[in-house]
Write a protein that binds this DNA or RNA. Structure first.
Lengths: 129, 129
DNA sequence: TTCCTTTTACGAAATCATTCGTATATACTT
DNA sequence: AAGTATATACGAATGATTTCGTAAAAGGAA
């Protein structure tokens, strides 16, 4: 088992990770253009951030071609799980059901997704005896 | 309708809000002692933070007695809702069902709470037609 | 080759959050 | 009253995050 350092991506870092998770390995240029869809940001800012993230081992880099290719080094689900745990404590004092209720109440979730959640509930209640 | 500035409490600020939400209006001393249960922190640090929060109108202060009494000026649910919205976008790219599934999967939620969630699901599916 | 564009490298500034030392005021204790 | 404890006020240091200017390197176009 490898040393699982529990890195905490900052908000900006998370934005970059999201691009890489969604689109796969990318150049700085591509990531920068994605980020630019949502906010004003300078190219070298994005570059610097990604370099820092590579330093922290959040990203891997392939430097074989001129435009370096960056890879997310953190797994999406594992990272989300960690963030969620922290958020749950910080914002909801650990009450998962409160969080879930609010999340469901305030978002347009499709019937299919609701059914998926219901299935999970069935499994959970079944197992919890 | 009053100007609803959408303040974003920082992590430390949120810790203080949690104490006030949970215990009601409190002195700096009390809040500080609550925080100290979880982490090392200096008294003047807590004081300063609460003063800053009062500046930002996150807290109201009653200065009539020597030990000032601080009140949460933000509603718990409304604040949680805002934080949740942001978190959902930042960490789950807006997918509430993914968040909910992960939250349920990884926390020990009681049968009673699961049933409560199920009821909400029923209401949602009913209404969404 | 020369010029223009794109990329990375580097370093530092700007911003924001957190922490705390010190001073001063107020109340309590003896 | 004198001394001690506890409170707020103030200002500044620290630290982390974010931003970006400038330069150097690499590649492509004329």
């Amino acid at each position: 088992m490898t040393l699982e350092k529990t890195l905490k991506p900052t908000e900006s870092e998370l934005e970059i990770l999201q691009v890489l998770w969604q689109h796969g390995p990318s150049t700085v240029r591509f990531v920068h253009e994605e980020l630019s869809k949502n906010k004003e940001v300078g190219y070298t800012t994005t570059l610097k951030l990604m370099q820092i993230m590579a330093d922290k081992q959040m990203l891997d880099v392939d430097k074989s071609s001129r435009s370096h290719i960056y890879y997310a080094a953190l797994e999406e689900e594992k990272t989300q799980q960690q963030l969620l745990g922290r958020f749950l404590d910080a914002a909801f004092r650990g009450s998962a059901s409160k969080l879930v209720m609010q999340a469901l109440g305030n978002s347009n979730t499709s019937k299919a997704e609701l059914d998926e959640i219901r299935n999970l509930l069935d499994k959970l209640e079944g197992g919890s005896k």
